[in-house]
Design a protein around this nucleic acid. Structure first.
Lengths: 121, 121
DNA sequence: TCCTTTCATCGATAACCGTCTATGCATTGA
DNA sequence: TCAATGCATAGACGGTTATCGATGAAAGGA
């Protein structure tokens, strides 16, 4: 916390009341940013959407390549980013790796966004 | 929609049931991604958080520089990105530009994320 | 009129990101 | 044992991004 003290309106050449400094959210900002980065790509949003719509909530990488129109290494790259962000998990089964969403991770994101929507007035 | 037809388990060397293709979300994916990109940065998350916590829900750019520890052009750059994503608006008042959040924009984001959290099972 | 303050833009630089081809490893079926 | 398939990694490339210092415009006070 920083001092909210005193000098409000003391100097008229000062713009406005000082802010609650951003420290409130500093740690959580650096935690949230990578998760948002992982989602901030059209390809990865489509992957998430495809996993959500997939018959058993699961799909192997090979099923994603053709609808996405990308090569296998590129899809693998995006899956890795989503995996490292904790948004999906992959379990190896035989020759394949089945990926599924981790909805809790998305829920965390939604909740972290909520406070910013409480109109401050 | 694509054919969910027939050949499930017909060929055992094929991985799994075909997906609903991603088209469902293709357009909205390219619409969402830029908004998520705008949020996917620790500095900009802090700006959003600071605006949400600011006394009148508003702040001018000059109040952000010092708590963020960044130069004025850099802060201006981030504000522009948030502005272009529709997440904040700035109104010029005298010498200052007062920025405030557009909570509806965040709400849209939350809602767009919701479908992916419905466990498909 | 001149100086100060707030803000945006420009140009440069260094880092990062998405995509590809090439390659190697593990698993499976012949 | 060999060939084919699914997947991950490495390396290269072109484009984007975050940051800075310098500069200029608009507004207001002295």
């Amino acid at each position: 916390m920083v001092d909210m003290s005193a000098n409000v309106n003391e100097r008229m050449d000062y713009c406005c009341t000082p802010l609650f400094d951003g420290e409130i959210d500093d740690r959580s900002a650096t935690e949230m940013a990578p998760v948002l980065s992982a989602l901030a790509d059209p390809v990865r949003l489509r992957i998430v959407s495809m996993l959500a719509a997939a018959p058993n909530g699961r799909a192997c990488g090979c099923d994603l390549e053709s609808p996405l129109g990308l090569t296998q290494p590129t899809v693998s790259h995006h899956l890795k980013i989503l995996r490292e962000a904790g948004l999906i998990v992959g379990t190896k089964e035989g020759r394949w790796v089945h990926y599924r969403l981790v909805p809790e991770r998305l829920e965390e994101l939604r909740e972290a966004l909520a406070p910013a929507m409480a109109q401050p007035v």
